[in-house]
């Protein structure tokens, strides 16, 4: 089953002579229950791609998205309520953003936004999400501390727990390991593999080997172009259609 289908996607910033094309001519399908990796050097349009999926462009000055993005066969742009769309899509940012509220409130925020007030329901939800994000044991005794005071690795797991509290069926991760130590990175990677049963994951990563470890299929973005999409193992060991892909995964640039 195709979860996300992207056709002729073109993303630009600014207008007129100062217009910058971030991404163009992207066509790809992401299947249900797969981890779809996106690799590529900085400024390749990876983050812009993620922002187009949950319609963040509408809250970003100057960002313009053309083409088609379908989630479960419906055009995301046709959703009358953009917020309902975003509630189904979890996002994890490169730098962990622990909101300046307690650990508990961070995770309870999403249910509360939907009107859940009952303490017992919230308690259960918080514990469940923190456990799945492999953070519960570390914070269960200090749920009242500020989320922004946790360590970088803990904050990043907190943001994953927060994303899980949305009960998303699509999870977007944007270079989540950039500010996280290797041990935590491994723990989060285990979490992701586990989450795959319940949701589809798009993993933008700066680490080629991370894509190799986790992704079922991987796309290579370069300077606003989707150069190649392949089964991950193919990309690393088999024939590639474009020599630039080989150069990048072998670490010759990037």
């Amino acid at each position: 089953m195709v979860k996300l289908s992207v056709r002729d996607l073109r993303i630009t910033y600014g207008e007129g002579p100062s217009e910058k094309v971030a991404l163009s001519g992207v066509n790809l399908d992401i299947h249900e229950h797969e981890i779809f990796g996106i690799i590529g050097p900085a400024n390749s349009g990876k983050t812009s791609f993620l922002r187009a999926i949950n319609r963040m462009d509408e809250f970003t000055l100057g960002m313009d998205v053309r083409g088609s993005v379908k989630l479960d066969g419906t055009e995301v742009r046709d959703w009358a309520n953009v917020y309902a769309l975003r509630r189904r899509i979890g996002v994890v940012f490169p730098l962990p953003v622990g909101l300046p509220m307690s650990v508990y409130d961070n995770v309870a925020l999403s249910p509360r936004l939907r009107g859940v007030r009952k303490r017992s329901v919230l308690d259960e939800k918080v514990e469940q999400c923190l456990t799945r994000a492999a953070l519960w044991d570390e914070v269960k005794d200090r749920l009242g501390t500020l989320g922004s005071l946790l360590s970088g690795g803990q904050q990043q797991r907190l943001t994953i727990a927060r994303a899980l509290s949305q009960e998303p069926d699509l999870l977007l991760l944007d270079e989540f390991s950039i500010a996280v130590d290797p041990v935590t990175t491994m723990r989060i990677e285990d979490v992701l593999v586990d989450l795959k049963q319940d949701m589809t994951i798009v993993l933008v990563t700066n680490l080629v080997q991370q894509a190799r470890r986790l992704a079922d299929r991987t796309a290579f973005f370069l300077m606003g172009e989707c150069v190649e999409i392949a089964e991950t193992e193919e990309l690393f060991t088999g024939e590639v259609k474009d020599p630039r892909t080989r150069d990048y995964v072998d670490g010759r640039f990037g």
């Binding site: 949950n54 809250f59 975003r86 509630r87 996002v91 940012f93 300046p100 925020l109 994303a163």
Partner: peptide, 25 residues
């Protein structure tokens, strides 16, 4: 700005973001 973006990406409306994140801080 990251606080707002994090909140928006969870499906909070602009007003919910203002009320729960921006104003308290």
């Amino acid at each position: 700005m990251e606080f707002r973006e994090a909140c928006w990406s969870m499906g909070a409306t602009r007003w919910q973001t203002i009320w729960r994140i921006v104003l308290p801080n």
